[in-house]
């Protein structure tokens, strides 16, 4: 939709709305990076910075609301313009939630630092890397109105679910091996869940982009592979020398 409006200030207002969302997305990716780096490096200082920086995303979300409201009241957008305003209003809270999950990961990093025994963090950084790419790509899809890229992000969520299942199994095993690790493993379990939720939000955003660009919803069920809610790890599996 590169054709400009007759009223050019309308274009400027739409561009500003899009710019705010892009800015939110960039901040969210930085927050994911920061929270995971802090986790892996046991960097409490960085973790605290991530917690503090979340307020910036919140402030941008409020600005998106104001800009979208003004656009609707003053310009009465139609068709793709209307879908664009609506998408911005729906994507902004999704990014804000992503920021909240990153903040929560950072908070747990501070708590983990005080846990009695540490647990090796193996799968979580890899999972976080995948989710970070999803968020980055979905924001690119938003900027470019690229429904193909949005769909690819949407399809990738199944990999995150599988990773989450692996982390869940891994952490349960650690807890059974050494109950002193329960505190740290519980925090890590929530951390993994937060990352998995970020993946869900990225797929939400992908769906909203699809609607914004085409006016239609993605009409299939999303592939899902989160088995953790029904998963049980038998003690035997954890013990050595059983087979």
């Amino acid at each position: 939709m590169d054709k400009g409006h007759i009223v050019t200030s309308f274009d400027a207002e739409l561009a500003r709305l899009t710019g705010l969302i892009t800015q939110m997305g960039e901040l969210a990716v930085a927050q994911i990076d920061g929270s995971v780096r802090a986790l892996v490096r046991h960097d409490t200082k960085l973790a605290k910075k991530v917690v503090a920086d979340d307020a910036e995303i919140d402030a941008l979300e409020a600005e998106v609301d104001r800009a979208a409201l003004n656009l609707m009241a003053l310009r009465q957008p139609m068709a793709d313009d209307l879908r664009r305003a609506l998408a911005a209003m729906k994507i902004a809270p999704d990014i804000e939630r992503i920021g909240d999950y990153a903040k929560n990961i950072a908070k747990r990093t501070v708590a983990l630092d005080q846990a009695p025994v540490t647990t090796p963090i193996v799968t979580i950084p890899r999972m976080a890397q995948m989710v970070r790419e999803m968020v980055r790509d979905v924001m690119q899809a938003f900027a470019d109105h690229d429904i193909e890229l949005a769909r690819k992000v949407w399809e990738r969520d199944v990999e995150i679910d599988e990773s989450y299942d692996a982390v869940f199994r891994e952490l349960l095993t650690h807890m059974m091996e050494d109950p002193r690790r329960i505190t740290s493993c519980t925090h890590l379990l929530f951390t993994a869940k937060n990352i998995e939720r970020i993946g869900d939000l990225a797929t939400n955003i992908a769906e909203r982009i699809h609607f914004q660009v085409t006016g239609d919803f993605i009409d299939e069920d999303r592939p899902k592979h989160d088995l953790s809610s029904v998963m049980v790890v038998e003690p035997r599996e954890a013990g050595a020398g059983n087979g």
């Binding site: 054709k3 400009g4 409006h5 007759i6 068709a79 793709d80 313009d81 879908r83 006016g215 239609d216």
Partner: peptide, 19 residues
């Protein structure tokens, strides 16, 4: 017509893009 017009000319007209 006003949320998801099919024809580009309709879209251009109702969104104010006719140049």
């Amino acid at each position: 017509i006003f949320t998801a017009p099919r024809d580009e000319r309709t879209q251009d007209y109702i969104t104010g893009r006719f140049g």
